[in-house]
């Protein structure tokens, strides 16, 4: 029973890994971003917790822990035939994943500080917009504590006025909704703590871009103009010589903004609400959280019995 309940978070991770990207494409982007981030965090916490509990249950019959915890080794071991040494496996896994998550969080902090320093050096930007004199068309949002939109003169000149408006509205959406801090980073953190969630984290990143695209299209009042802005900005970048702002990273960044998918999505009709899919994701989260809580209860119960048996034997 314990084992079965404890498997639920892992099953949920697999479901998210398999279905996450498709779910991200089908849901309205804002909903997809929020739900997938929440589902990722829930699942990562639940898997980490369950792994830790497993490690503890398996290691508990070790004489040293029995002496410290005053519980009956036989009762703690229960029906599980696994030797105590196997507990080292989940213990190592949980420590490794915890270290990865902490490393990731430290990395975020460092990047945030770097972004903040950059914002200060680039500023003051009274309109929240910095135009840099660069031949390479480029536009991005720096997510420091105070966000900043950076656009190169080449990018501004490559786009006609209505598409420039789309670009600014897109970046403004990133800043206004805190896409970086509130979603993509948390989803990446969940993926660090549970590698099965890497796919869903990528889906969150794409969904956040799509969210900003949809906001920009709404602002422009025209989806085609928004699609055109993406296409023209992409082509302008492709036409410009490599080098400049980020020459070295050209290949690395290539797949990251999913230009083709985003453009196609804008050319299609606005995304529909999908209550059934939302319900399914919510149910998955509840089930996962419930399984973690259930595992906690069952384990506590087992240890209570083991302690009782221990003091009884005295």
């Amino acid at each position: 029973m314990t084992a079965l309940v404890a498997l639920v978070p892992f099953a949920a991770s697999v479901v998210l890994a398999l279905a996450g990207p498709r779910v991200g494409r089908r849901l309205p982007p804002a909903t997809a971003t929020r739900l997938l981030t929440a589902a990722g965090l829930t699942t990562a916490l639940a898997t980490g917790f369950v792994l830790a509990v497993w490690a503890f249950i398996l290691l508990a019959p070790l004489p040293e822990l029995v002496a410290a915890g005053h519980w009956s080794a036989a009762v703690v071991r229960g029906g599980d035939p696994l030797p105590a040494g196997t507990g080292l496996l989940p213990a190592a896994a949980v420590l490794g994943l915890l270290a990865a998550a902490i490393g990731r969080a430290v990395g975020f902090g460092r990047d945030l500080a770097a972004a903040q320093r950059a914002c200060r050096r680039l500023g003051p930007a009274p309109a929240g917009l910095v135009v840099i004199d660069d031949d390479r068309p480029d536009a991005y949002t720096v997510s420091g504590l105070t966000g900043l939109i950076v656009v190169s003169t080449a990018m501004l000149r490559a786009l006609p006025a209505d598409e420039r408006r789309v670009l600014l509205a897109h970046e403004d959406s990133h800043l206004r909704h805190h896409h970086h801090h509130a979603y993509t980073q948390l989803a990446a953190l969940a993926a660090a703590a549970n590698p099965l969630l890497r796919g869903p984290a990528r889906a969150v990143r794409l969904a956040a871009e799509r969210w900003a695209d949809e906001d920009a299209a709404a602002h422009a009042g025209d989806r085609i103009v928004a699609a055109r802005a993406l296409a023209r900005a992409g082509l302008a970048r492709a036409d410009s010589p490599p080098g400049g702002a980020s020459g070295g990273e050209r290949v690395l960044a290539a797949a990251d903004t999913h230009l083709e998918q985003r453009t196609r999505a804008l050319l299609g009709p606005p995304p529909r609400r999908r209550p059934a899919l939302v319900g399914a994701l919510a149910a998955l989260m509840l089930l996962t959280a419930g399984a973690a809580i259930g595992t906690e209860h069952l384990t506590e119960h087992r240890f209570e019995q083991a302690r009782a048996a221990y003091s009884h034997a005295r």
Binding site: Y140, H179, H180, A188, E209, G234, E249, A253, T257, L259
Partner: peptide
Amino acid sequence: DGGANRAEALARFVADL
């Protein structure tokens, strides 16, 4: 800039094609 393990504190409008 977004390497594999970077935090992507920088959200590009469009990347390279």
